[in-house]
Design a binder for these strands. Structure first.
Lengths: 352, 352
DNA sequence: ATTTAGCACTCTCATTCTGAGAGTGCTACC
DNA sequence: GGTAGCACTCTCAGAATGAGAGTGCTAAAT
């Protein structure tokens, strides 16, 4: 993570206002902003010449730059960072939008899959960017119940239920066919033995009555560990085509590189995991220009947040767009949706 | 479905050869093919003038067209249809490639999810197009086993196992908490009552011993019907960015429209379902230029096949690319992967 | 000490023009 | 029937041009 290196005391009140204005205008228009345009369109009581002087300072300080000698100014990454940090606290999603979104969630079928898809869809449409939502992944897990169901021949379906309500199912192929009664016996014995235990505790236990018990015990421990270790849950995306509509990506090559990241789920998971691993739930992170780490995102920004219940189950979600993205819309949306999902996860964990 | 309206007897042997050559060249180069180029690069014993005459005929017959008066020829949709129908039977995937692909499948974890992802990935990389794989969906389903597991308070996990080995799980919220013993009793009774039944049969049954039994019975029937009705399984795609690399899509708008279809899963499912519903497993379909039905695919072609075991479980898969796609590579790949998945599905249904 | 008006200068971008090149269709000849 | 030759058409890349926008600097105004 890079530390923002601007010093707010450097900027006069007027410079701040101008900088914000310039960036806002550029985000709207995608055109370099000139002093004249600025003086005319917004009623600042300043002549274009004065604005020019201030712009020159801002350029020198690294917040703006000129694409070429005689064009208007365009924000630098540093400029965007300033813009975002200024706006971060103020921006709130309009109440009507908040209600619409909440409504959609509480009207959807109460399944994780539905929620993830919905969250991705809402983020994408609100922000006009590409959204990504990683399903929550459990951080600790305690055994509640196991069922063993013979399906066909040597195949057995093992269903594992955790105290938090998570379910894992897996098909085992045994060395030889085992009748359902014996499987049920094993399940009953293990249910008694393992109630409430953690994966770690289980892996040290031994079960005696039946050699099958020990085998299953091992598999359970293994499965529970796997549930925790899985770096993060499945990934949902939406709005992939939005990014193609942006003028800066009309030369398809840049767009392709950015979208490629979204096809390689592994990289994406890594990115989400790394950038949110040490941040609190509820805190937003804004990555501007790939922050020097992700070359394919050099032209992009991401707004990312972690959601869920720390210590129990958390996931991450975010929006990718051009650096010139509508932060004032995206940031509050991401924050709001993250909050909503946190509530849903929390409700789900504590039971009804 | 549109009927191909060319009449093969119209074409002399020489015209056939030329047409195939022109289309192949255009697919490779993405450049209109001229008579001179043709005469020089391929050693046909014909002068460019003769070729010009033949090209004029082919143009009149509707297989070729000129982008403008003085450019080479480009295939029409009709031309591509002819090309595809000629090639359809001949093309075979090289054995080494076949082995590599099979190998990947038999090495992967034996889970549907893995297979689908792998199939999508292979199709995309082999064809350099956008791949789509719809998971197989069961066409008939017979009850095997149900488990009811109390998770938290009024929430109950219902796990349904079918004779084919499919599993469905669902969380129910009961009106009031029910102890695990009573749930187990219900499950045991229903298991006896329903063994081997179809959804239809189950929905007409009535269970007496316990009011809970009847409730669960209804849910089971409902769930089994849902499994069948679901038009098709989940959809996997890969290679979305491939299409952006094609020269005809460098103007991002066309590409966006095509990719949008892949974001709207519903449309895509519909498309797959409709085009493959009346075709046999193993038969390929090639949709060229959207076949007049899908406006967003006007510039695209799709190679689609159905796979699975008819009457039991079938799915669909395919590749989307520009009309100028590498059919000679795509067609055999789609055919081969469809065959492979059919085998896997078939193995899976009959048990080990 | 700021702010502003004015001006010379720079650079881009859309437009126009031009010639090279590619490809065609037709005609006359083999 | 096949082919050489030729006049013709059309596109495309590159050069030339000029309008327009924007700048930085200086000198005057507040």
């Amino acid at each position: 993570m890079r530390v923002l290196n601007y010093d707010m005391t450097n900027l006069s009140e007027r410079q701040k206002t101008l900088l914000m204005l310039i960036i806002r205008d550029y985000i709207d228009s995608a055109q370099p902003v000139g002093s004249k345009r600025l003086a005319e369109h917004y009623h600042i009581n300043l002549s274009s010449a004065t604005i020019r002087n201030e712009m020159a300072s801002l350029t020198e300080m690294g917040y703006l730059r000129q694409p070429h000698t005689s064009a208007g100014r365009v924000p630098t990454e540093e400029g965007y960072r300033y813009f975002v940090s200024e706006m971060m606290n103020s921006a709130e999603l309009p109440e009507t939008v908040q209600h619409t979104i909440s409504h959609q969630f509480y009207q959807s079928r109460p399944e994780l899959d539905q929620w993830m898809t919905l969250a991705a869809s809402i983020l994408a449409s609100q922000s006009q960017g590409v959204s990504v939502v990683a399903a929550p992944h459990v951080e600790t897990t305690n055994f509640k119940h196991v069922e063993l169901i013979s399906t066909q021949g040597r195949q057995v379906l093992m269903v594992l239920v955790m105290l938090g309500g998570e379910v894992s199912q897996q098909i085992l192929t045994l060395a030889e066919p085992v009748p359902q009664e014996r499987l049920s016996g094993t399940a009953t014995r293990l249910n008694g033995l393992l109630a409430g235990q953690t994966a770690q505790a289980i892996s040290t236990l031994t079960a005696r009555p039946d050699p099958l018990d020990q085998d299953i015990l091992l598999l359970i421990a293994q499965d529970m560990r796997r549930m925790i270790e899985k770096a993060s849950g499945e990934i949902y995306t939406d709005g992939l085509t939005n990014v193609l509509a942006e003028p800066e990506f009309s030369e398809s090559d840049e767009a392709r590189r950015a979208l490629k990241i979204f096809e390689e789920r592994a990289t994406l998971q890594d990115l989400l995991a790394r950038t949110t691993s040490n941040s609190d739930v509820g805190a937003l992170q804004v990555l501007i220009g790939g922050e020097g780490e992700y070359d394919d995102l050099r032209q992009c920004s991401m707004v990312i947040a972690r959601y869920g219940v720390p210590g129990m189950a958390t996931g991450a979600l975010g929006v990718l767009g051009p650096m010139r993205m509508a932060y004032s819309r995206t940031i509050p949306t991401v924050r709001f949706v993250a909050g909503l999902l946190s509530d849903l996860v929390s409700d789900n964990i504590s039971g009804e």
